[in-house]
C-alpha cells in the first residue's frame, strides 16, 4: 500500500500554496501514489485547484457543513477515516498542519515526524531541531501508518497543469461539538503571502514604533514584497503576529529577504535559511545577522530606506 494522502489547507476558496510544496515532497517517495483530501463545506473549487497539481492521482472531495472551518478536533476523525487506504498521511507544517496532524497521529496510535525537510526514504527523513542549529535524521516505524508534516520552505511548488480525478468521498466519523469556531481576525491586505512571496521585507525592534514600521510597508509595497518581522517587533505591537518569521513564527523561502534592524538571533535566522539572498541592514557592524547575510550594509535604516526605495522602485 504505497499511497500518500495529503490533507489540503485552504481558506474556503483557495488552496494554500503550501500544498503544491507538499506534493513536491511526496514526489520524492519513489513508487508512491499521491492523493489530496479537501475537507470543506463547499469543496468543488478547491478540488479543481488541487486536481491541477502535477503528480496527484486523485482528489477526495469531502463535504460537510461542519467543515466550513478547519477545527482540528472536527477534521481529525474524518482524516482518520480517510487514511484507511494509505500508508502515509502528510500535512503542511503551517499552523493548520501543526494543529491537525498530531491529533490525527494520536487517534491512529502512531508517532509523527514533524517538519520533513528532505526525504531519504519512505521512512527516513531529515528535520531541523534546536531552532535549526542541528539537523536530525529520523527513522520511522514501518509497521504503522506514517503521519508527518512537511517543512514547506524546503520544497519548491510542484508543476500545475495536471488533471487528477475528483471523487466525492464520505468520511464517516462522529464529530465532536466541544470545539466551536468564533472568528478570524485577519489583516486585510493585498500584499503577497509571506510563505509564497518571492521578496520579503522584514523589520525588527529597531523600527521603534508602529508608526515607523510604515517605512517597511512602503518599501515592501514599492517592490511587491511581503512583510515580515522579528518577534521583538511583533511583541512590541509594531506589526501583527502573522508577520513573525522564525522558529516559532513562519518559515520563509523568498528569492530575496531584507532583514532591516534585526539582530539575527538564532530563533529568527532559522526562519530565513532557505532564502535565496539575504540582505542585512543594521547599524551595528557586529550584529550576528551579518554572519549569514549575502549582502550586508552597516547603516542607520532611517537614513537609507527612503533612498533604497527610490532606487529599486
Amino acid at each position: 500500500m504505497n499511497r500518500i494522502l495529503i490533507i489540503a489547507e485552504h481558506d474556503g476558496k483557495t488552496l494554500n500554496p503550501g500544498i503544491a510544496k507538499c506534493v513536491s515532497c511526496a514526489m520524492q517517495f519513489a513508487g508512491y501514489e499521491t492523493d489530496i483530501a479537501v475537507l470543506a463545506d463547499d469543496a468543488a473549487d478547491i478540488c479543481r485547484q488541487a486536481a491541477g497539481l502535477q503528480g496527484v492521482s486523485r482528489v477526495l472531495q469531502v463535504e460537510r457543513p461542519e467543515n466550513a472551518q478547519a477545527l482540528a478536533a472536527v477534521f481529525a476523525p474524518q482524516v482518520v477515516a480517510l487514511a484507511a487506504g494509505y500508508s502515509h498521511v502528510l500535512g503542511p507544517s503551517t499552523t493548520f498542519g501543526k494543529d491537525l496532524m498530531p491529533r490525527v497521529a494520536a487517534l491512529l496510535g502512531t508517532s509523527q515526524v514533524s517538519d520533513i525537510m528532505s526525504v531519504s526514504g519512505p521512512y527516513e527523513f531529515k528535520r531541523p531541531v534546536y531552532a535549526g542549529d542541528v539537523i536530525q535524521t529520523v527513522k520511522a516505524a514501518q509497521d504503522s501508518k506514517l503521519v508527518a508534516t512537511v517543512r514547506i520552505a524546503s520544497f519548491p511548488p510542484c508543476q500545475t497543469g495536471g488533471s487528477a480525478s475528483v471523487e466525492l468521498v464520505a468520511a464517516d466519523a462522529v464529530l465532536p461539538t466541544h470545539t466551536r469556531y468564533v472568528e478570524l481576525r485577519a489583516q486585510a491586505s493585498d500584499r503577497p503571502d509571506l510563505q509564497a512571496a518571492s521578496r520579503v521585507v522584514a523589520g525588527g525592534r529597531a523600527l521603534g514604533s508602529a508608526e515607523n514600521f510604515k517605512l517597511i510597508y512602503d518599501f515592501a509595497d514599492k517592490i511587491g514584497a511581503a512583510v515580515g518581522a522579528s518577534r521583538a517587533a511583533v511583541d512590541a505591537g509594531y506589526v501583527s503576529n502573522d508577520a513573525q518569521v522564525g522558529q516559532t513564527g513562519r518559515i520563509v523561502a523568498p528569492d530575496v529577504y531584507f532583514a532591516i534592524g534585526i539582530s539575527g538571533a538564532i530563533q529568527h535566522v532559522t526562519g530565513i535559511k532557505d532564502a535565496g539572498t539575504i540582505v542585512a541592514i543594521n547599524k551595528d557592524p557586529e550584529a550576528p545577522i551579518f554572519e549569514i547575510a549575502d549582502i550586508g550594509l552597516v547603516a542607520d535604516l532611517f537614513a537609507i530606506i527612503p533612498e533604497l526605495q527610490s532606487q529599486l522602485g
Partner: peptide
C-alpha cells in the same frame, strides 16, 4: 520515530559588505 544521526547544518557562505545604497 527514532533519531539515527545528527549533523550541524551547512553554514551559509559569508557574503559581501557594501558601503552604501
Amino acid at each position: 520515530v527514532e533519531p539515527v544521526a545528527f549533523a550541524q547544518p551547512q553554514a551559509r557562505a559569508r557574503g559581501v559588505m557594501v558601503d552604501d545604497v
